[in-house]
Design a protein around this nucleic acid. Sequence first.
DNA 1: CTGCAGGATTGGAACGATCCACACAAAATG
DNA 2: CATTTTGTGTGGATCGTTCCAATCCTGCAG
Lengths: 359, 359
Amino acid sequence: MSRGSTNGLRHNGHAPTLATVAREAGVSRQTVSNALNSPHLLRPETLERVRRAIDSLGYSPNRAARNLRTRASHLIGLRVDRVVEGTANATMDRFLHSLVESSKDAGYHVLLFSSGVDAGNGAHDGRPDETTAIAAYDDLLRSTAVDAFVITDTYRGNPQAGWLDQRGAPFVAFGRPWDEPKAGHPWVDVDGRTGVMLAVDHLVERGHERIAWVGWQKSSFIGEDRRTGWSDAMHGHGLSTSRLSARGDDTLDFGRRAAHALLEAERPTAFVCVSDTVAMGVLHTLAELGLAPGRDIAVVGFDDSIAAQVAPPGLTSVRQPLEQVAVEIVALLDKRLSHKPIDEPGRLLTPTLSVRGSS
Amino acid sequence: MSRGSTNGLRHNGHAPTLATVAREAGVSRQTVSNALNSPHLLRPETLERVRRAIDSLGYSPNRAARNLRTRASHLIGLRVDRVVEGTANATMDRFLHSLVESSKDAGYHVLLFSSGVDAGNGAHDGRPDETTAIAAYDDLLRSTAVDAFVITDTYRGNPQAGWLDQRGAPFVAFGRPWDEPKAGHPWVDVDGRTGVMLAVDHLVERGHERIAWVGWQKSSFIGEDRRTGWSDAMHGHGLSTSRLSARGDDTLDFGRRAAHALLEAERPTAFVCVSDTVAMGVLHTLAELGLAPGRDIAVVGFDDSIAAQVAPPGLTSVRQPLEQVAVEIVALLDKRLSHKPIDEPGRLLTPTLSVRGSS
DNA sequence: CTGCAGGATTGGAACGATCCACACAAAATG
DNA sequence: CATTTTGTGTGGATCGTTCCAATCCTGCAG
């Protein structure tokens, strides 16, 4: 191929391929391939020679060609939902970064995609969105654009999980299969109940007895799980929960109203909230009434969002171990993709409590 | 999409290929390919026949094969930095989603990657990190894993931009080439100076005259640009800026200390801050001193972060049009990749002001 | 009737990697 | 000594698509 020039091979405009390296090292293509994928098959000195050739040419295997032959993309798909403004659950950032990092260690990259149609209003009833979401998953699978998925939105009945499962598509869920406890797919989740119990224990230790719960609607599996943590811990300490609970949606405004109502009727000395968003709403009410959080009344949130970290006086909050969640997810994914046996279908991780000024 | 006939998705184990579709429609492979990529070449009735075959088989072209042949991956690489905890700049979420969305419209997906080494401490001196970052970019390019990059970290001299430019790699930057105004690469940025001027105008309208600036160090291009907005607007209104400015790093603590010092020495009635993080620090000080933000003293931040939206009483903040930034970036990227001429190398977008309780 | 432009369609040859079956040595086995 | 085993290395064939050049139509002018 290299016509004329004595050294050839360099700066000829084309990126080096396996064949280029093979010629340079005086071996066959297959041997170079083995040097990369199964080094143990080569004699040490041959391996060394090939590696030198690879280095000197600056060769990296072409992903597309490898993907075509191996029928794998080494990509993990993650759907990014519409951002809901005005809520504090910015857990995504932390999780995302950690997921990218652990994926890299396992030899994968993360591919982001969206379902296409932005649901016009509040994310609570996204029925039409779900079908387009499934279409997006389906398309990526059929075109072999990704090897597997990580799905994160398992709150309330999750059609995607069931659909993917039925289709035999590999995926790991961040979140339990609440509505179908016997679902076969692997999952990783954080034990919200225990997290809230930590919060209650902390408050009791600080001398609180009238601790109120500000949560989500009954239809939310996650919300009810966390609420269980509150009621179990309260009863464990011999405290009453009667009339100390409010439920609503995940908005500032609900938190604000719930705090008003509870303060007026029952005079709790502490609030445990299902989310930081709701907790921030409670803080709004305290500010309006001239009550100092942490001194007059304690507040605890859930998610350890950025808002909890920076808003004065600092919001005590239950922190999910998102880094570890990502690691576990990738581990399960890797097992699934290399057809190794998965001993336990789900892993439940324990959160911690970040104590700040609000308690 | 998949038609109702008995086969739909045929479960013969193998996914349908171009050849399968061609056989079904009674045409050649190439014709099917043309039906997908250059429909105008087909006679309408042939096109219709091919499309029906595609639908009935549930065919999607294999990405890897296409990528191999066209030498393109249709992926856009985005590096996700280490998350800095305790700062409010969670602009990433919004930008990311919007980027994914507009990429999709242009036929691209977003691939996330990380540079590999987590810098141990504050993101201010990431020198060793930069070389590994470049290695990551290089690897993705050589293996043709991505077609182009979006780079977002153009604060302070940015080695990646220069390196990518020199290498002839296509990319668009979110952020001006501060240190090299004549750099040839396309970029999109937000006019921070104008944003801060909006903030000052707003405060002046509210009757403030002693408006302080709490900013970043002189070495920060972005910080100084925003600061110019403050001083220009102040002078425009005939107000003095003397002794009303403080500079430090992007931390809660700096904001807190700067507010203390300024309040003691100069008694400003309003603070304009270079970031929401710093602004939150100022709010901490106000809370400590028993001053009510918005009533006793006004505070304005920058970024319209989630914390600004939810922390009581709501932090007035300059909001970057991240959705539009993403759209412009993808537009430029698309032009760059299809070798269309780019009329203007950079686009500067104007932010808006989100007014809340703190002013 | 022939020639011919042009649009519509086709089959072979890539793209660059890995899978597969086999060749050839040296070493272990009967 | 013949034969099997083991360790290394090889060249075709293949993954599913698009590029390329050639071929087949069809209608229209000469």
